[in-house]
Design a protein around this nucleic acid. Structure first.
Length: 572
DNA sequence: CAGTGAGCGAGCTTCCGCTTGACTT
């Protein structure tokens, strides 16, 4: 029997850490939480200050028995769950269930699985932070009270087996309200005027600054250009730079895998799990954009070797998310020297995305030159603008460019021919195309995750399950929405003649987007009406602040829950 | 008398967050 028992949350982590610590240490995993609130209404004794009644989760009985045995035989037990609210609670539950004594129990934490970090943690143990544990218990109790009191109201008033909760109900609300905006949207149209000019046999495309609102105005403008002489007005050249994005967190990985690979969030997480288990990437449920020193050095080496010194720009990113707990590193390859990994095509593509994003995050800015050429004429005072962008130094763009959710037509800015101010230009044609405004985009799974994260709602481990719950309950569906046809006018001025045609286009088609079912709308409407506080987008942020106060020892659990629960229970 | 169907009552659903297998299909 080994002298030291170290307990972490994840078995893959345990394996790595065991290698760093040597023979005297046995490293085991608790597989996450080992205890949870009991099933029914008796789980929380409200009279006794919301005293929670915990039971060992059925699927954890075996591991708990094993850990008990190992703990008994060990001289020292090191509780090494994550350094966040949930992790602290896991350590506390372990110490309760395994009946650990303070004299031979130590709590250690680290934010990265590197040898230095682990050894450093062993050197600097601490005690379990009971305030932080209480904050977790408050979180757990509040979620249970909300979920298990609201859901039965829905069974009685709407339909059996429905559910409501702090996270899922707000997620559905986002989708319901977005759909309302889509339905209420009134489209208008205007004309996009584009001129195709010519300078010494090379074409220049310029867009008119103003957009005529009606076909008459568009026509009038084209008429006013008849016989016009076009020439180059002001030329504006500005240097610009573009910086790489931070390495992936769970939420940004889900978004980018959705945009670039077309994976839904559960597929992304499943593939990432496999890559993690096989040691190819770091932990995939994280809200941190931080890279370990080891990783930054490793990336630098790879970049210098592969692309050259001038492509390397080591740096640290800081999180923008207020709710981040940063118990782990960002998602990155375990070794930057390995540019391909994975057991199947899906894993390989996801690995490559992770590798590129992480390595680009340590690469130089791209240096650009943006050019705007004004094109003026002698018949009216309107100005066409031709825009071009030239990459002077590609930097991180050599490996990676972040995708966007924006569906609007991208400006095709590229190389512009060399011209000088005052130079006469030929005109090939000027067109005016009727363009309609578009309603806000419906959420994809990934863009919903993005919105939830911005609101501080949910955690990396729950984004994918939440998305599947709201669909399983039938609140939200992901059907294909068929497009409709509509006409648009196209006016062209060519050889001093204006011609007009009416073409038709499809619009409004949507697939893989989330929209609410009738049940989703009814339930959301009902909950907003009677439980406005919980349905408020700021509710989670508000209670998080209170949890923080508990964690800081400024407030106690029963006080905090009391102020919420009493009015809430009355409403129920 | 066997088979069918209406009507009734009992028991169940449900939260969020931390982890993977162990199950089906």
């Amino acid at each position: 029997m080994s002298k030291n028992l170290v307990i972490v949350e994840s078995p893959a982590k345990a394996k790595t850490i065991e290698k760093y610590l040597g023979k005297d240490f046995t490293v085991k995993s608790s597989f996450g939480h080992i205890r949870d609130l009991a099933k029914g209404d008796g789980a929380i004794d409200i009279e006794k200050g919301y005293l929670p009644n915990y039971i060992i989760s059925p699927d954890k009985k075996k591991i708990v028995t094993e850990l008990k045995k190992l703990a008994k035989g060990a001289d020292m037990v090191w509780l090494a769950s994550d350094e966040d609210r949930e992790g602290e609670a896991i350590s506390w539950h372990l110490s309760e269930v395994l009946k650990l004594k303070a004299s031979n129990t130590k709590r250690i934490v680290f934010h990265e699985i590197t040898k230095t970090a682990i050894l450093n943690a062993i050197e600097n143990p601490r005690d379990i932070d009971e305030n932080l544990v209480n904050a977790q218990q408050a979180r757990r109790v509040l979620d249970r009270l909300v979920g298990f009191q609201l859901s039965p109201v829905l069974w009685r008033k709407v339909k059996p087996s429905l559910s409501a909760g702090r996270v899922q109900s707000v997620a559905v609300r986002l989708i319901v309200e977005r759909e309302k905006e889509v339905q209420a949207f009134t489209t208008s149209s205007s004309f996009k005027v584009q001129g195709l000019f010519e300078a010494s046999k090379k074409g220049i495309k310029g867009d008119l600054s103003k957009r005529p609102a009606t076909v008459e105005e568009a026509n009038a403008f084209l008429e006013s250009c008849k016989g016009a002489n076009f020439s180059v007005g002001k030329i504006n050249v500005t240097p610009a730079k573009r910086s790489s994005a931070a390495p992936f967190t769970t939420s940004t990985l889900q978004q980018e895998a959705s945009r670039k690979l077309g994976y839904n969030v559960s597929k992304t997480m499943l593939l990432a799990q496999r890559l993690y288990e096989n040691g190819h990437i770091t932990y995939m449920r994280t809200d941190s954009v931080n890279l370990s020193e080891f990783a930054r050095d490793n990336a630098k080496g790879s970049i210098v070797k592969e692309y050259g010194q001038e492509y390397s720009k080591p740096r640290n990113y800081t999180t923008k998310s207020g709710s981040a707990q940063e118990a782990h590193e960002a998602i990155r390859p375990t070794s930057f020297d390995v540019s391909a990994a994975g057991a199947d095509d899906g894993q390989k593509r996801l690995y490559q995305l992770i590798w590129k994003r992480a390595i680009a995050s340590q690469m130089s800015d791209a240096q650009l030159e943006r050019t705007t050429i004004d094109i003026v004429n002698d018949k009216n005072s309107d100005v066409f603008k031709a825009k071009g962008e030239v990459i002077k130094f590609d930097g991180f763009l050599k490996v990676y460019l972040e995708g966007t959710d924006d569906e609007d037509e991208e400006d095709e800015s590229g190389l512009l021919p060399r011209v000088s101010e005052g130079e006469q230009l030929g005109v090939l044609e000027i067109s005016a195309t009727q363009r309609y405004t578009r309603p806000p985009a419906r959420y994809t799974e990934a863009s919903l995750v993005k919105r939830l994260e911005e609101l501080g709602i949910g955690r990396p481990s729950t984004y994918a399950p939440t998305i599947s719950t709201v669909q399983k309950r039938g609140y939200v569906v992901k059907d294909e929405i068929e497009g409709k046809k509509r006409d648009f006018d196209l006016l062209v001025l060519k050889n001093d003649e204006v011609s007009k045609v009416t073409n038709s286009e499809n619009y409004g088609a949507d697939k893989n987007k989330m929209h609410p079912s009738d049940i989703g709308k009814v339930v959301t409407e009902f909950l907003i009406q009677h439980f406005g506080e919980i349905m408020d987008y700021g509710f989670t942020a508000f209670v998080e602040k209170e949890f923080d106060e508990i964690a800081d020892g400024m407030k106690n659990l029963s006080e905090m829950i009391d102020t919420f629960y009493n009015p809430f229970h009355k409403d129920v």
